[in-house]
Write a protein that binds this DNA or RNA. Structure first.
Lengths: 340, 340
DNA sequence: CATAATTATGTAAGCGTTTACAAATCCTTT
DNA sequence: AAAGGATTTGTAAACGCTTACATAATTATG
């Protein structure tokens, strides 16, 4: 009875204890139909008794799959990515797949490196969150026929599996909400314009203006980079105009917070003097004061859906997959009001 | 079924191309000294040329190590954990180890399950961030002699490798700062008292009071749970007292935000009427208005250090390791002022 | 210059599985 | 009761690598 703690119990141990061949044990744990019911039960009992857990590496080596999928993220700082991962994780654990996390944060060039390595057998599939330069990566993976899904990035014209949000309509709706409040001069702070989502949000803004017969003023558009300071600087520039805006729509929540900061720093109030709208609905959007009116992106759901897509690709490699866009939604809080 | 048409390049391919045996190639990629310099170079060239990447699973199987370490986290929501992971990731990638992420969020009981599985060979070591019920887990791992490090949790009396922050002195310093501002009645909202860090912060608070000859008032201590609503409810209760506090010290930033919310909801201002201090210094602490004065925990560094400790345990299993506490620091922003 | 020492390389035996394929057992059906 | 088929079980060959150990090549030694 005194078994060594250190030596792991293998499929052979189970086989011996159950009085069957290891092949049978393998069939049992893989739910192969060709096992007599009572044999299966006996084996399962022994598995339980011996506390057997199949060795993942051996399984992978023999089976040709790694049972884990790689998730490439730029960072974990803002909670934005965290939400997406939460969704990914949920789906993955349902499928009993491991999540191997790679952060490209420190070295941007690592993105390409990782993909090259990962795609050559370390994981069965890849989920790329907010990739910065997907063109080459996508090409690499496609020519290797390696399964992957892009999350929150619409490549410029590239046709590949991706899950994103309806950025255009988010931009449109937020702008239209501001217009409905009576605003005519609405400042806009863009995100990194190399990212499709930023382009789309701006396009939505423009469309809403046009639809409502408001003349677009280039001076009201400030090019930001999705970081908080851009919001501050952008808002400052906007407020310095001869005809400053009465409302500012920032392309993400973090910048919107920078905007609020700038507004207050010049002695103005949100929303009495200036209305502010963000985009994303990150957790802290409801924590700041005034609570931020913003466009909700279903972050967790994006993670879930992307994972589902990837898993279905794994099951059926031939299946044609394409871009999926999840709806965004206006969340009205306290940062907007009628213009003075 | 889905056979890979793309034959991966193996160690044998490299060996053939370089005109050596696969054993030599193995030595080269493992930096074994017993290889002639020019042979090594030739092999390396071929590796480059063929774009060879060693198969992780095979390596693990043969070598008896998985080259990856598991990280168990409760969640990724607040950015708090994200910071820690950033540190872990940095160290891990230096050591060329993979990070396998497990989130226990949805099912608390999964913690134990994961540990049982992981400890039996899926990873070489485990990093447990903010574990909720470590007692059993720790016992399991210790008796299996499985390497692990606890992050941000001081077990009640358990002697095991752990990395945390100086919660006591953080609590002490924050309280003393408030006292130095002139506050005499300082409310305190605790964290989950089953977590050592919460206990320590409270103890620090009490000590500071005592040192400064301020009589402790039990009524000023509200037991929270580290969630934002606790801050709101706690502050409300505190402000309802006959002799309400002039300052409130919340055991983490998230609760502090709840506190600010409650304060404002009764028409009071921060910091003019009530001073607020948090703990953690999460990214959004500097984003809220007024910016939160808080105790900085070196989250990323905790991740780094814990990883270093784990790696050293992997290298030298016999080495005695113990608890490490990193210093905390008061960060003064805009949420505190003199009492009226 | 032979011989021992040293260093470099080749070889074979696993590591713990999966999975064809072969062998054995159990039912049917005449 | 025996043949044929279906079902269940056993076996051996990978999977790609590490690592003793054996062997070959090189250098140093007397």
């Amino acid at each position: 009875m005194n078994k060594k703690m250190k030596s792991k119990v293998t499929i052979h141990d189970v086989a011996a204890e159950a009085g069957v061949s290891f092949g049978t044990v393998s069939r049992v744990i893989n739910n192969d139909v060709h096992v007599k019911k009572e044999t299966r039960e006996r084996v399962l009992d022994v598995v339980e008794k011996l506390n057997y857990v199949a060795n993942r590496q051996a399984r992978s080596l023999a089976g040709g799959k790694t049972n884990s999928i790689g998730v490439l993220v730029p960072d974990l700082g803002t909670g934005y990515i965290g939400e997406i991962i939460r969704g990914i994780d949920a789906e993955l654990s349902l499928a009993d797949l491991d999540l191997i996390l790679y952060t490209t944060h420190r070295t941007p060039t690592k993105e390409a490196n990782y993909v090259a390595n990962l795609a050559s057998g370390m994981v069965d599939g890849l989920l790329l969150v907010l990739p910065r330069q997907p063109q080459d990566l996508v090409k690499t993976m496609q020519q290797r026929r390696f399964p992957f899904v892009l999350i929150d990035h619409q490549g410029t014209g590239q046709d590949c599996p991706a899950v994103g949000a309806m950025n255009w309509s988010g931009g449109y709706n937020a702008t239209e909400y501001l217009i409905s409040l009576g605003h005519k001069r609405i400042g806009f702070i863009t995100g990194s314009m190399d990212l499709g989502c930023a382009v789309d949000r701006l396009a939505g803004y423009r469309s809403a203006l046009k639809t409502n017969h408001i003349l677009e003023d280039e001076a009201l558009i400030y090019e930001g980079n999705f970081d908080q300071p851009d919001g501050y600087v952008g808002a400052s520039a906007l407020l310095d105009l001869t005809h400053p805006p009465t409302a500012i729509f920032a392309s993400n929540d973090v910048m919107a917070m920078g905007v609020m900061d700038a507004v207050r720093n010049r002695g103005l109030r949100v929303p009495e003097d200036i209305s502010v709208v963000g985009f994303d609905d990150i957790p802290q959007a409801s924590l700041v004061r005034p609570a931020l009116t913003t466009i909700n992106q279903p972050l967790e759901k994006m993670g879930r859906v992307a994972t589902q897509v990837l898993l279905s690709m794994l099951e059926n490699p031939e299946k044609e997959t394409t871009r999926i866009e999840l709806p965004t939604q206006l969340v009205i809080r306290d940062s907007c009001g009628k213009p003075k």
